[in-house]
């Protein structure tokens, strides 16, 4: 391409006079780089990565235990709720039984009172009815005696009464 190729003819890559120099500095560079990396950088980065992995797995384990604890707490809460609920149910049942008992007692007492009263009333009614029957008989005898007297028949009062009583009994029967 160019007429004159300068001081070093052709490709500088094939200028063998510079090879020892390049190889020497390359060796120095590689050794320095290897020492820097293997002594300082790689152990440091490796330990940071290991530490991070450890932290992450620890955190995950901690989260796991917290989760278990939360589940336990929830179970305990549910159990407490269940207990409270059953205790409340028991109290309600107790109260209901007590009220029922009171109620039963009151009803029984009231029934007894009512029975007593009605018995008394019946007795009174029976007495009234009896006295009413007696009064009817008296009135019938009196009326019969008067009627007999009006008819001008003198009859024995006792006979009339007997007849009236007999009729009354028949009517009643």
């Amino acid at each position: 391409m160019a007429e004159d190729t300068g001081t070093s003819a052709g490709m500088p890559q094939l200028d063998f006079s510079t090879f020892p120099n390049q190889i020497l500095w390359l060796a120095v560079t590689l050794i320095v780089l290897y020492l820097i990396l293997s002594r300082v950088a790689l152990p440091r980065i490796g330990s940071v990565l290991a530490e991070r992995a450890g932290t992450i797995s620890n955190d995950i384990a901690a989260a796991e235990t917290y989760k278990v604890q939360a589940a336990e707490a929830e179970a305990a809460y549910h159990k407490a709720l269940e207990d409270a609920r059953s205790a409340a149910a028991k109290v309600v049942q107790q109260a209901r039984a007590d009220i029922q008992a009171d109620l039963d007692a009151a009803i029984a007492k009231a029934d007894a009172e009512i029975a007593a009263r009605s018995a008394e009333s019946e007795k009174k009614i029976a007495a009234i009815r009896e006295s009413a029957d007696a009064a009817v008989a008296d009135v019938a005898r009196d009326a019969a005696r008067e009627i007999v007297a009006v008819f001008g028949v003198i009859a024995e009062a006792a006979a009339v009464d007997a007849a009236v009583d007999q009729r009354l009994k028949q009517g009643a029967a």
Binding site: I36, V40, A41, R44, I45, V48
Partner: peptide, 16 residues
């Protein structure tokens, strides 16, 4: 080559 060493050190040593 020295600059290469410096650059690598910047990344791997100073960076970390």
């Amino acid at each position: 080559m020295a600059l290469t060493v410096v650059a690598v050190s910047l990344l791997m040593v100073v960076g970390s």
